[in-house]
């Protein structure tokens, strides 16, 4: 077994880092030299990782164009190894990578769009969660409502940006009209990602609603989160946001703060 392990490590270095093929590699091909065979294998390796990234980041690919995307992902692939046997786990570092990627520096919104796309990707593959049990909620005495700790769905993500990332995302979905106008003066964007009936959706939340939900996601009690939000946003409408996010399947469970 150690021999096999060594062989595989050596082969991996050849494929990933371009080291000279080990002399152990079978050279009994009639139509290929070892160098050509290794080149084909390496191209498959890169091609599959590129495809995984294109699957996770379709909006980024449209924004920068296919050729630019391919060259960008090639550099990403050189810097980031796949750490999982599941290709859907590959590409989490794209947002940070894009932020440092010099040829894309002019597209200042790109890292945040990448973060939103990764959230959508993770939302798609997140575990299912049951809908909020209102019968169970109805058994809680109203005097204890402030102590409720609300749990959000594993598919729910809040992505905040100073750019209109939700509008950019929507403009690049299948079926969206190709002609769009993005208003960069509309200020920051709080994009709420959730999943309903296996479809990933992106909504925009008002600043107050996003601040409140961030508190809820951090595990703060309903009373504390609401008080903190009202302090900053006196017009915060708890009833509206609560109805909205329960309808979207964002809240899935609750517990009590003092238990």
């Amino acid at each position: 077994m150690p021999a096999l392990c060594n062989d595989l490590s050596s082969f991996a270095r050849t494929i990933v880092h371009g080291e000279e093929p080990s002399s152990e590699i079978d050279t009994n091909y009639t139509n290929y030299s070892v160098a050509v065979a290794v080149g084909v294998y390496r191209n498959n390796y890169r091609g599959n990782l590129h495809d995984a990234l294109a699957g996770a980041y379709p909006v980024i690919e449209q924004l920068v164009g296919k050729d630019f995307f391919r060259r960008m992902t090639r550099q990403f692939i050189g810097q980031h190894l796949s750490r999982s046997g599941n290709l859907h786990h590959y590409g989490a570092e794209m947002s940070g990578f894009v932020a440092e990627f010099k040829p894309a520096q002019d597209l200042v919104y790109l890292p945040d769009v990448a973060a939103l796309e990764w959230a959508c990707h993770c939302a798609y593959f997140a575990d299912d969660a049951a809908a909020l049990d209102l019968v169970k909620l109805a058994q809680i005495p109203p005097v204890q409502y402030s102590e409720l700790i609300l749990c959000t769905s594993p598919a729910c993500h809040l992505v905040r940006s100073r750019f209109p990332i939700a509008a950019i995302w929507h403009a690049h979905q299948p079926g969206a009209p190709g002609d769009f106008h993005i208003d960069f003066d509309c200020g920051s964007c709080n994009a709420l990602v959730c999943r309903k009936n296996d479809v990933v959706m992106v909504f925009e939340l008002a600043e107050a609603d996003a601040a409140w939900l961030q508190g809820i996601q951090a595990g703060i009690s309903l009373g504390e989160a609401t008080a903190a939000t009202l302090e900053r946003f006196p017009n915060f409408d708890l009833q509206a946001v609560l109805l909205n996010i329960v309808t979207q399947g964002v809240l899935v469970d609750f517990s009590m703060a003092n238990h």
């Binding site: 690919e61 449209q62 920068v64 995307f69 391919r70 040829p103």
Partner: peptide, 19 residues
């Protein structure tokens, strides 16, 4: 991916998609 390498090494410096 039957080719040895289908990616040219040079960068296109300017993104040319819907950005």
């Amino acid at each position: 991916h039957s080719k040895v390498d289908n990616d040219p090494n040079d960068f296109i410096v300017v993104p040319e998609g819907s950005c």
